[in-house]
Each structure stands twice: as C-alpha cells, then as structure tokens.
C-alpha cells in the first residue's frame, strides 16, 4: 500500500492507495501517530479513493485509530471509498462508527 500524508494546520489528510492489509500496519501507525501527537490536530481525513481492498486487520487498525482519536476529541472522516471498499465498510457496519463521505 502507498501512503501519502498531507499536513495542514488542524485538518490533515492521509491518502491510501493499493491494498490496505496487515503489511501496512507500521506505515499506518507511524503516520497516524504523528498526527495524534500534534495537539493542533482536530480532524484526520482518510482518502480511500485509491484503495482496492481492505482486510480485517486494516479494519482493526481503523478501530484502534478511532479509540485513540476519541480520547483526544479528534474527528476521523473516511472519504471517497471505491464501491468494493464501500461494500466491505457496509458489511461491517462501520458507518455506525465513522463519518463516511462517498463523494
């Protein structure tokens, strides 16, 4: 998976491309930790438009991120999932946990 971090004051965006699986664990954690450590961060946007696939480990990583951001009052928004990825998010009902913007 390719991960690109665009930092802006308060709102940062992480663009994910390829297959989001367990192998991406370290890259994802490092990038999100950097944002979590920054007291200015108010919102983290994950751009999923380039993702083909997410496995259950990557869903787990989103849950861990959600727990950490909740403690700090940071909002996580998932944007532009492909139909395949949206299907996966729907099956596990992640719409109940995250704001998902399909466009």
């Amino acid at each position: 998976m390719m991960l690109t971090l665009h930092r802006e004051p308060s709102t940062s965006m992480i663009r994910l491309e390829g297959n989001f699986t367990f192998e991406s664990h370290t890259a994802f954690r490092t990038a999100t930790q950097e944002l979590l450590d920054d007291a200015e961060t108010k919102q983290i946007t994950l751009d999923l438009s380039g993702l083909h696939y997410m496995d259950s480990s990557s869903l787990g990583m989103l849950l861990v991120l959600r727990e950490k951001t909740e403690e700090k009052g940071i909002q996580v928004v998932l944007i532009k999932p492909s139909p395949a990825v949206m299907g996966i998010l729907k099956i596990v009902q992640f719409g109940k946990l995250f704001e998902i913007r399909e466009v």
Binding site: L63, I91, V92, L97
Partner: peptide
Amino acid sequence: GLPDAIFMNRRGTVRRFTSRNLPAGV
C-alpha cells in the same frame, strides 16, 4: 459483519439478510 445470508422460499424467491450489526468485540 458477514456477507449477505440468502433465504429462498419454495418458489425460489430470494431474500437477502444483509449485515446490520457491528462485528462482536468492537
């Protein structure tokens, strides 16, 4: 959190049961 369950009546009409709950342990 699992794929749709497929229910079929005797005439072959299909009804899907889509996941409507979060996986357990979340």
